[in-house]
Write a protein that binds this DNA or RNA. Structure first.
Lengths: 344, 344
DNA sequence: ACATTCGCCGAAAGCGCTTTCGTAAAATAA
DNA sequence: TTATTTTACGAAAGCGCTTTCGGCGAATGT
């Protein structure tokens, strides 16, 4: 089954390829009668332009890539997949395609990006989980290739980004906890080369200071962003001499692990010890108990990111597109007053 | 920053484009000395072939697409995202790209597939959640385009697929329940145009028959595959005259909703009423209580699917690739003996 | 009546790469 | 030494589409 090409169409209509092409692409110098003939013949013969040829000729890719950092991340994370959904929404509305790129090593990463931007396969990329100092961003900038980043690196004035005010979010959560009487609040963080992770830790520090709570390194844990890591970090803390009365986690998946550790010790979250997650995953409504969390709508983020990227590809100034949103505290069941007496 | 092209390379080396091209692609008629020169010059000048041009010339796409049906499905589902992860694993190992295509309406769906296969953008597609009677499969077959499907449609002898024995899986679960003394087992199903859904219902029927349990339509619910639907379906059942003592769900997400409904009534799953999910999602370990479920490893499925597809693109006979796996019952906490007296 | 603009389409080059074919020069055979 | 095979590369066509340019006939102007 051979595909019908431009030439086939032209022959069938007794026109030239160039005329048919222009008719299809809405050029003004084609009579409306011809345009109609061409269009109906096109659907009749099932003509679909060969994208490779088209892109070779025009230079526009009609596709964007989502690239996710190599380690500690997986396409299977709810965070990621929801974002993906949002990106796809926007991109496909324009008829473009979505490519996902997930590399497993750092060199692989740079290599993949380089390949992406030089191969002509995509017209732009959205970056996720930037590092504080992100080589990928530099690479993209140097190549002058359209991109947006979900989050920010340390220096963020020169490109497009969409971020949540991480510091504020954590401060909000901590203040809530303090309001509930907590003074000993553990922090379950993520690797600090992720800027969002760094910022959240900053927020934690700031919130402590604001509330005259001394910094205590022994109750901050830096872990991978999954449930198992959250669980063992919490286990650490709960089994210590002076366990915290609350946990602030930088992700819901970690918080879910924390919850497991709490249950495993016969305690109940929200009563014996509080925990606040981060992400607002839907699944949090069904954990045991339902998870209080800082919520940021990922799918919406994805859509906005894609829209920004598309605009930039169309020529917009990237620095015009810098959006800072705030996370929202959604109260469920894992926050509660600090126990007057500790559970020990 | 202009990208370096084949011609640039050729000029720099004082060779022809054709020679350089063949040197890079491992043709035998190039002296090893020249090959070396070309290769080092290539990395030095950062040469990356323009994929569009390359694909135009060769006709091979070096990319595959994952397409997911329009309704009742989202990229954000754990099921989907884990599969995606697996596909990406295999595909990227070969240096190919992964495209995701998620359409929102049925016409859109056919249109997208047609576009996919004629546009030359991808060399093959993996289909998910086939319908009993799946127009996409027919389209792909008619076009003689490489594809594999995750699951099967009603007639499945003529193409490549990777499936779990749905019927067996449900029978296994039901038998387990019956062994626990349950006789009144509700079935929380999915829309029956999905073949997997149909098969699972068949399994349910068969298991009932095997155990001399009469079929009772009033305790089978067909719902969307999300937690909310599961919850309201379970609510229905629990509030009925003669509530079931157990729930068999065709997905973990539904099961999670069922658990919520159970909790909401002051009952506890695994004691007052049993529930078995399907998928083996990791999150099931953290539900309240942890969810007993039929597990199928999605990431692994993704890898195998991709490998099959790649082989088929390379010329393998699709019908050689038909893999049937079995799901595994993973016992957690939501299955338990049927209560002698009902909880009413 | 002529010149002039406009509408509409064909011709042709080019996007960057692959691949077949032909052919010098070098190596082997005679 | 001459004839034959190899070796190593260049020439050229082609993949399917876009886009600029040029020019014909028809419509307008004066």
């Amino acid at each position: 089954m051979k595909r019908t090409t431009l030439k086939d169409l032209a022959n069938a209509l007794d026109l030239t390829e160039s005329t048919v092409s222009r008719a299809l692409n809405g050029y003004a110098d084609i009579s409306s009668r011809t345009v109609e003939r061409v269009q109906s013949a096109a659907v009749e013969l099932g003509y679909k332009p060969n994208q490779n040829a088209r892109r070779l000729a025009t230079g526009v890719a009609e596709a964007v890539a989502y690239v996710i950092p190599q380690n500690h991340s997986s396409l299977a994370e709810p965070f990621v997949s929801q974002l993906l959904q949002g990106i796809d929404d926007s991109v496909s509305r324009r008829g473009w395609d979505l490519l996902v790129s997930h590399s497993r090593s750092a060199e692989d990463e740079a290599e993949k990006i380089h390949r992406l931007i030089t191969s002509g396969r995509v017209g732009g990329v959205v970056l996720s989980r930037p590092f504080r100092n992100d080589a990928r961003i530099k690479l993209l900038q140097k190549a002058n290739f359209p991109f947006v980043v979900h989050g920010r690196s340390r220096i963020s004035n020169s490109y497009a980004w969409y971020d949540i005010d991480n510091k504020l979010a954590i401060k909000t959560a901590i203040n809530h906890l303090v309001g509930l009487g907590h003074r000993r609040i553990a922090f379950i963080g993520a690797p600090l080369y992720y800027n969002f992770s760094y910022q959240r830790l900053e927020g934690y520090k700031k919130a402590l200071a604001d509330n005259d709570i001394p910094w205590d390194e022994s109750i901050v844990e830096i872990t991978e962003m999954n449930d198992d890591s959250g669980e063992s970090a919490a286990a650490n803390q709960l089994d210590s001499e002076q366990p915290p009365t609350a946990f602030m986690c930088v992700s819901d998946t970690q918080a879910i692990g924390v919850l497991a550790a709490i249950r495993a010790r016969g305690l109940t979250a929200g009563q014996d010890v509080s925990v606040i997650g981060y992400d607002g995953l839907k699944i949090g409504r069904h954990t045991n108990p339902p998870l209080t969390t800082m919520s940021q709508p990922q799918a919406q983020s994805g859509r906005e990111l894609a829209d920004m990227l598309l605009a930039i590809i169309d020529g917009d100034d990237p620095t015009k597109h810098q959006i800072l949103k705030r996370a929202e505290l959604v109260l469920r069941k894992t926050d509660g007053p600090a126990r007057a007496n500790n559970y020990h």
